[in-house]
């Protein structure tokens, strides 16, 4: 399946990745070649086959409802790009 440039722009936006205009052609070509390889899947007979999400058949284990965490805000925010008054800062969000 070949992608066109518009597909790539749309995907890059969904993934919030900046792709420079000058790179779009090359990106389109490489993604198309990968998708071409993936296309082999379509020939596989999979009628009645259960999709496999996990390697093991185990089921989810449950955690007891107890508070085990304490406040480490200063430590965690010491590696943050921008904080103020204990809040993480981002450019203004408009709703």
């Amino acid at each position: 399946m070949a992608l066109d440039k518009e597909d790539v722009v749309k995907i890059a936006h969904l993934a919030r990745l900046q792709v420079a205009d000058s790179e779009i052609d090359a990106t389109t070509e490489r993604l198309s070649s990968i998708l071409g390889m993936i296309e082999q899947l379509q020939a596989a007979p999979t009628d009645g086959i259960e999709p496999m999400a996990h390697p093991t058949d185990a089921v989810q284990r449950l955690r007891e409802d107890v508070v085990t965490e304490s406040n480490h805000r200063d430590q965690y925010q010491s590696i943050a790009p921008a904080t103020e008054d204990g809040l993480y800062l981002v450019p203004q969000v408009i709703e």
Partner: peptide, 28 residues
């Protein structure tokens, strides 16, 4: 619940900002 759905952080309302946000809640 006492703790969050996927982490052991407290769920108390009205705490100081980000004092009940542990590694899992921060998506580290």
């Amino acid at each position: 619940t006492q703790s969050k759905i996927f982490s052991g952080s407290a769920t108390t309302f009205g705490a100081e900002p980000n004092t009940q946000a542990a590694l899992i809640d921060l998506g580290m």
